[in-house]
Design a protein around this nucleic acid. Structure first.
Lengths: 349, 349
DNA sequence: CTGAAAGCGCTTACAG
DNA sequence: CTGAAAGCGCTTACAG
């Protein structure tokens, strides 16, 4: 049997050939216009059966192309999103996108493309104008970033939470955020503090961490090496275990900076376990937001990225970039939001 | 100026015509193969400039179609998802889909289509084989369901959490779930119970509520009308307010069934406000799951839908349905999961 | 250095 | 009742 160049998929033409009818007839029948076009019942049946037998699947692209004279083609935007962040972070982002699309009555199709941290390049063949009009990329690792830097893409790309020379980005000033966290601890007179970090982290988390440490040093706040612990995973258990290490250190911290919201409740639990009351004995500050932080006991002080705004701005940026083919990458720096709650008081003025 | 039939969008042909070159040349230059094909720098520049000026956007469908001989077209699956459920419920569902796609090495493109509760029909022109190979629909209202029942669609549709005669569905037995919740309260010897419901609810929530009420009656458990309150919104505040109404009733309930997880912490807070300790004075059972329910104080007993399984099964169903064009709708009934935690003990055997 | 033609898979007037 | 042809927008051999 000879291999024809077309793929394994069955086309209308093949059905038509097998049945000795024209492809127009097949198309009409398969679209339910057989009666209307007065195709004989007999022919209709044969076509239906053959289509089923050959497992015919219409090519959506061909159909959409056919329609593109009547129906304006939407912009197709891919959202490449790190698998671990398929949580309320993504949900808030999607909500932001949906509202922006709806409020501005945009003709956009959102294609969701989760990827594994550090493996963005596995999607290489999709990140181009043969597949999408633009791409939003969230949660990249340093390797992913390197991959992006070292390649050329012919569609606008907006990075969420990463700054690069080459691409558009929407972010907060992570270094500044880290500095502010340390400043907060300084103004609240903490002398020994702890840090619960993440073992797999992107550039932005690294920046916060760096800034936090440097500023602590400047302000004469001690972060003992044993007061630093990195979570393997973004969950309660990992947060708990990391915090236990920090809390059982000789030099007891009076405040802890938790770098991922998903670890926060574990840290709180650890405090309780070793008999420390938050915030009386120890203050907790968390990077990352969750609706439950407003209702826990104690409620949790956070510094958060404005995801809904991120969504709106990144969509805007993609569209502007598509339209102008602007060459210089745009950068939108938004302000992080401090939510002062019970677990850590605010700045002392 | 005459209106041509093609849309406002600019095509390669128009650029070519304006410049007096062929569309092939334009295509080559725009795809960065100008040097390779030894198109004069001059021509390249003119083409680039004109494309920018005319704001040219390639038609993705045409490109994908062009490639479809080399590259197998993916199945395009739309996920119609109720806007209010763009939260961790969707996140868990997407995670499930991603893992199923990855583990089975499927060639599928996921298009996310949020919709407003009760307004699914606004997307009517997209729910067909001109746009997608199949659709997953989550969170429909009764009106949405009616809309679906009363129309014909030529692509397989899987409903999440709804059973109908006409469509595939993946769900749990909601009536049974409601019955079990009431049974649990009965076995734990509650005589007066409360219900915190939802004001905008789909069929499944209605079924749970109905079953819960009926079974309570059967088991001689009183649900005073004043012990029933419906939340306008799925959040803390709404849960708190509804619970306050129920808790200040004359006939004090000793257990409350909360029908949406997003209201749960508000209910807990209300208990605290009126001086009731959970579970000593009052037990709380929640429909809906969240990771924080395992860590709150008290931890919260829930009955949950297995979203990850929902995702996997629905994807499977769509694919089977696409392939077999199976006529009879398939129904996958999965078991809900009871998570017994502190807020309400388990069945007494 | 560039143009004309074929073809991706489909649907829809049009002709008979 | 059905077929042949045109065309959706694009890219790529092929020819010159």
């Amino acid at each position: 049997m000879e291999m024809k160049k077309n793929t394994a998929k069955v086309q209308i033409k093949q059905i038509a050939d097998k049945l000795g009818v024209s492809s127009g007839t097949v198309s009409i029948v398969l679209n339910g216009r057989g009666d209307q076009m007065r195709i004989s019942k007999m022919t209709q049946k044969r076509i239906q059966d053959m289509a089923k037998e050959m497992n015919y699947q219409p090519n959506i692209y061909a159909r959409r192309l056919r329609k593109s004279a009547e129906e304006e083609a939407p912009y197709i935007i891919a959202i490449f999103w790190r698998e671990e962040y398929l949580d309320d972070l993504l949900a808030r982002f999607l909500k932001g996108l949906y509202h922006a699309i709806k409020n501005n009555d945009l003709n956009i199709e959102l294609v969701l493309q989760p990827y594994d941290f550090g493996n963005l390049e596995k999607h290489h063949r999709f990140i181009n104008s043969n597949h999408f009009n633009g791409a939003i990329v969230g949660g990249i690792s340093n390797e992913d970033q390197q991959y992006l830097e070292q390649n050329e893409f012919d569609i606008p790309i907006v990075l969420i939470g990463r700054s690069t020379k080459k691409y558009n980005s929407v972010l907060i000033d992570y270094y500044d955020a880290g500095t502010n966290c340390a400043n907060l601890f300084s103004m609240r007179n903490h002398k020994i503090v702890g840090l619960i970090g993440l073992s797999t982290k992107g550039k932005s988390v690294q920046l916060i961490e760096l800034a936090f440490k440097e500023t602590c040093k400047e302000k004469n706040i001690l972060i003992d090496t044993n007061c630093i612990s990195y979570c393997e995973e973004r969950n309660f258990t990992s947060g708990y275990e990391s915090a236990m290490k920090v809390l059982t250190n000789e030099k007891k911290p009076t405040a802890i900076f938790v770098m991922d919201g998903r670890n926060a409740f574990g840290v709180l639990k650890a405090c309780k376990t070793v008999g420390l009351t938050v915030p009386k004995d120890i203050e907790i500050l968390v990077f990352g937001e969750n609706e439950y932080f407003s209702y826990s006991e104690p409620t949790i002080t956070t510094i958060q990225q404005p995801m809904e705004q991120f969504a709106e701005r990144s969509l805007n940026m993609i569209l502007m970039s598509i339209k102008n083919k602007a060459d210089n990458p745009m950068i939108q720096e938004l302000s992080p939001i401090f939510n002062f709650r019970e677990s850590c008081g605010g700045f002392i003025l």
